[in-house]
Amino acid sequence: MSLIGFIRAFILAGLPRSTEDWGQGDLAVCIEAKGGAGDNIDPAEGDLLRVSDVCCDGIFLHFEGKPDTRHWLAAHFRKVRPDTEPAAEEEWVDQLKHFRRKEPA
């Protein structure tokens, strides 16, 4: 291993890891907006972004609409998972049936 490879491996080993299984096209919400360049390109907390690429074994994420030369720590994002539960239509209809209009006093 070259000296540069050793230094790279040492730095990457010290970075926080994400527990998510990131993939291209995933939606990510920013939960921590530190460690970036501090410019208007950096995501802000609460920003919703689409992953365009995952690199360094999931340590870094690239996002659609952001420069390809920039990446952010995956540990600062959480995956937005779609709701796969069926709608509770019966419960909603039951709530509507018991809904009462406000009567003027």
Rank of each mutant, 00 (worst) to 15 (best):
residue 71 H to I: 02
residue 102 K to D: 13
residue 19 T to L: 11
residue 95 Q to C: 12
residue 16 P to A: 04
residue 77 F to P: 05
residue 90 E to D: 14
residue 20 E to Q: 13
residue 61 L to K: 02
residue 63 F to T: 06
residue 46 G to M: 04
residue 5 G to I: 01
residue 55 C to E: 07
residue 59 I to D: 01
residue 35 G to H: 01
residue 4 I to D: 09
residue 9 A to G: 11
residue 41 I to G: 05
residue 2 S to W: 08
residue 2 S to K: 11
residue 94 D to T: 09
residue 29 V to P: 09
residue 9 A to I: 06
residue 63 F to I: 08
residue 49 L to H: 05
residue 18 S to K: 04
residue 7 I to A: 06
residue 90 E to M: 08
residue 102 K to V: 13
residue 12 L to D: 06
residue 31 I to R: 08
residue 13 A to Q: 15
residue 13 A to W: 15
residue 48 L to W: 05
residue 26 D to I: 03
residue 9 A to L: 10
residue 6 F to A: 11
residue 25 G to S: 09
residue 76 H to L: 06
residue 87 A to F: 07
residue 31 I to D: 05
residue 78 R to H: 12
residue 14 G to L: 15
residue 76 H to A: 13
residue 65 G to S: 10
residue 77 F to L: 06
residue 93 V to T: 09
residue 27 L to E: 00
residue 51 V to E: 06
residue 62 H to L: 14
residue 72 W to V: 02
residue 54 V to K: 00
residue 100 R to H: 15
residue 13 A to N: 15
residue 39 D to N: 11
residue 6 F to E: 12
residue 73 L to F: 07
residue 81 R to K: 14
residue 7 I to Q: 03
residue 97 K to L: 14
residue 103 E to Y: 12
residue 9 A to W: 10
residue 40 N to Y: 09
residue 37 A to Q: 14
residue 8 R to A: 10
residue 92 W to Y: 15
residue 44 A to E: 13
residue 49 L to D: 01
residue 75 A to G: 02
residue 72 W to L: 04
residue 35 G to K: 00
residue 29 V to K: 12
residue 44 A to N: 12
residue 27 L to H: 00
residue 98 H to E: 12
residue 25 G to I: 02
residue 78 R to E: 14
residue 58 G to Y: 03
residue 13 A to H: 15
residue 64 E to D: 10
residue 46 G to C: 06
residue 71 H to L: 07
residue 26 D to F: 01
residue 85 E to F: 10
residue 85 E to H: 10
residue 5 G to P: 00
residue 47 D to F: 03
residue 56 C to F: 04
residue 34 K to P: 03
residue 25 G to Y: 02
residue 62 H to T: 11
residue 64 E to P: 00
residue 60 F to M: 01
residue 90 E to I: 07
